[in-house]
Design a protein around this nucleic acid. Structure first.
Length: 672
DNA sequence: AGCACGCCGACT
DNA sequence: GTCGGCGTGCTC
């Protein structure tokens, strides 16, 4: 009797469409089927989310499903329901969520399996090293929870080198030995090489890894193998949280604080949060791990929502790197000309390591030579024509580049405003540091690792490989040098400008800075020799820097929590950000105010704090003017209800707001 | 989001 | 006279 299918299409439409099921497609059309449907004058891919006896519109308007594009249901009921939760919570279209759940887009008909995998024996012969007492202590409640087959969430707070990965592997082994499956989420598969390797070493063929280098076929094979339980462990990034795992017993979210877990475009979901929901629904255990917990997760641990497990010491018993804060203000007053790049103290630390033939990592979160060029005569600064930012001077290419949209133009020799030739370079980027290093240490071999030197395929690996083989003394780079690198001969890390991320106008900038600095500092002293770290800053007293230097997460948390609680920011409130953008600024402002004014008048808004409407900190990007309206309240339901009101209001928008785009970011990671 | 339709301005 | 600019409405 179920003659109709409700089909979700991957468009920003928060509704499904009814289609007739042709007889010949018969039983192939079930919930979770992937289909192609006539949609207006074109065809759309879509997913069957429901079977019904009656269409939502008069039957004469109903068209028939054109074809089924995959022989079996692509989504099983638990994943469909998870996607429905995501669509609902993040105010997204279910079709877009389902599309995002299939990495690499739509899948072709699978070919016959080329080989049958023998189920791998468990308990593997490999180098199982003995766990430390601390590791055993945190592992016990995790394995107990896996055995109990009931939902439990753990926050595993383990400093760099404390052996978190080994705990993950043991927990996974427990789940596998009970016939379960394991999902391991990592922020970026390319930067989590060691986690992947460790799991491969422990479980061999039973591990499937999703990474961007996979062909569609390989990706599909892994996906299928997960569904048929041929593999027991899936390791992947954000979107892997939707992998079908019928026997799921354990989810691990490594580096749970990493911003990469939040998708920045629609659907704007946070894979850590989705993982927790998934674990709840599957009666599984979820372990959120990291060296610097997110404010959210640590607050959840304090509230008793997560069980806190701590690994406060390194497994090798060595002490963590010594961190010193270097006050650049003192240095500045004696600087002869130009900005301070390497303080005398940092320079002498470098010289010392070079003399000892130890390696050095230097971190600066800014590529190019100088972040702005300015006319000394009239003050003119070259800016991007499409974005509200200054252009960065790149030496060698002799060009000015926008780091947001990629716009590139030739460097200016004379001022475009006044014609004078007193152009100077402001601020410092990695190229400028490289130049300074060469001037100060002409014999030092320097490798630069940033977006510009890693553009060509394979160059990232080549640079790191050369550094690992000690073909260079100094590795200088952006974020890329902060995460996961493990070079035993590196005994010193220098942060050229620790304030870089601190001065970003965002409620999370202190948290980001603390995390970044802790991460970078963790690159030093991984071998036999102890490590040293120097942070150069103009704010030596800032709590994020002091806490990073003392490597004291809890004191950072306490201080930050006080600020956030006072200002009613997450995790002590729930926030949504309403985003408006468009080519004509007056219309963007008009639309934002038109929605905002309506929301301010809504009943039930007493508990809600409104911010704006105001220009977003990056007020123009790729030619679009950007405004926003943020709302926060003690409870999610209050802001969520206002999202509904905003959508209703927007649906009946006035014609003058055409060409303005409106979208919603639930639990935003930043307000930029 | 597309895509078509429709209504106005400036060209071969 | 039409080409094309974008504003508007719809997709089962």
């Amino acid at each position: 009797v179920e003659r109709y299918a409700e089909v979700a299409v991957p468009l920003p439409l928060r509704q499904t469409f009814s289609y007739r099921i042709p007889d010949e497609l018969g039983e192939r059309v079930g919930r979770g089927a992937q289909v192609e449907v006539p949609f207006g004058r074109r065809r759309q891919p879509g997913f069957v989310v429901d079977l019904t006896e009656a269409p939502r519109v008069p039957p004469e308007r109903v068209k028939a499903i054109a074809r089924v594009t995959y022989p079996e249901p692509v989504f099983d009921p638990p994943i469909l329901e998870l996607a429905e939760w995501v669509a609902e919570y993040y105010v997204a279209s279910i079709g877009e969520v389902l599309m995002a759940a299939l990495p690499g887009g739509l899948r072709a008909e699978p070919r016959r399996r080329s080989r049958t995998r023998e189920p791998e024996r468990l308990g593997l012969a490999r180098a199982p090293s003995r766990l430390s007492a601390a590791q055993e202590r945190v592992l016990a409640p995790i394995t107990a929870s896996i055995a109990a087959e009931r939902y439990a969430a753990f926050l595993l707070f383990g400093v760099t080198g404390s052996g978190k990965t080994e705990v993950y592997v043991r927990a996974a082994r427990e789940a596998l030995s009970r016939g379960g499956q394991v999902l391991v989420l990592v922020p970026e598969i390319g930067l989590s090489y060691q986690v992947v390797e460790r799991f491969r070493m422990a479980f061999g063929d039973r591990v499937g890894v999703f990474h961007s280098g996979l062909t569609k076929r390989a990706r599909q094979d892994t996906w299928r193998a997960a569904r048929t339980q041929e593999i027991g462990v899936v390791v992947g990034a954000r979107s892997s949280v939707f992998t079908p795992l019928p026997a799921l017993k354990l989810i691990i979210v490594d580096e749970e604080n990493d911003a990469a877990y939040k998708q920045s475009d629609v659907p704007r979901y946070h894979a850590r949060e989705v993982a927790v929901i998934r674990a709840q629904r599957a009666n599984a255990t979820v372990v959120l791990g990291g060296a610097t917990p997110s404010m959210e997760s640590f607050a959840n641990a304090r509230r008793g929502k997560f069980r806190l497990l701590t690994l406060p010491e390194r497994v090798d018993g060595r002490s963590p790197a010594r961190v010193r804060v270097e006050d650049l203000r003192a240095e500045e007053s004696t600087a002869r000309r130009g900005p301070v790049i390497l303080s005398r103290s940092l320079a002498s630390e470098i010289a010392e390591r070079l003399a000892r033939r130890e390696q050095i990592i230097l971190f600066l979160n800014r590529r190019g030579y100088a972040p702005f060029v300015q006319c000394r005569h009239c003050g003119y600064v070259a800016r991007c024509r499409d974005c509200d930012v200054s252009l960065t001077y790149h030496r060698g290419r002799e060009s000015l580049i926008c780091h947001y949209c990629g716009f590139e133009r030739s460097n200016i020799q004379e001022c475009e405003k006044c014609g004078m030739i007193r152009i100077f370079f402001g601020g410092i980027g990695t190229q400028r540091v490289e130049e300074e290093l060469q001037a100060l240490f002409p014999r030092a071999r320097v490798l630069r690792l940033d977006h510009d030197t890693t553009r060509r395929a394979g160059s990232h690996g080549r640079i790191l490989g050369a550094f690992a083989r000690r073909r260079a003394d100094i590795l200088l780079g952006t974020q890329m040098v902060a995460k996961g690198l493990d070079f035993p001969n590196v005994t010193f890390v220098g942060v050229i400008y620790a304030d870089g991320s601190l001065n970003i106008p965002d409620f999370r900038s202190s948290e980001r800075t603390f995390q970044l600095l802790t991460q970078v500092a963790g690159r030093a002293g991984r071998g036999r020799r102890a490590g040293d770290v120097v942070l150069q800053t103009y704010y030596p007293d800032h709590y994020a820097l002091r806490a990073a230097a003392a490597q004291d997460f809890v004191s950072f948390f306490e201080h930050e929590a006080r600020n956030r609680r006072e200002l009613l920011y997450p995790p002590f409130s729930r926030m949504v950000n309403l985003l408006f953008d468009g080519g004509v600024e007056e219309r963007v402002i008009g639309a934002a105010s038109w929605v905002a004014d309506h929301l301010r008048r809504q009943p039930g808004g007493e508990s809600v704090r409104f911010m704006g409407p105001a220009p977003q900190p990056l007020s123009r990007l790729r030619g679009k003017h950007r405004w926003h309206f943020a709302m926060r309240a003690p409870r999610h339901a209050a802001v969520r209800a206002l999202c509904e009101a905003a959508l209703d209001r927007w649906a009946s928008r006035e014609r003058r707001f055409a060409s303005v785009r409106f979208s919603i970011d639930v639990d935003p990671m930043d307000l930029l």
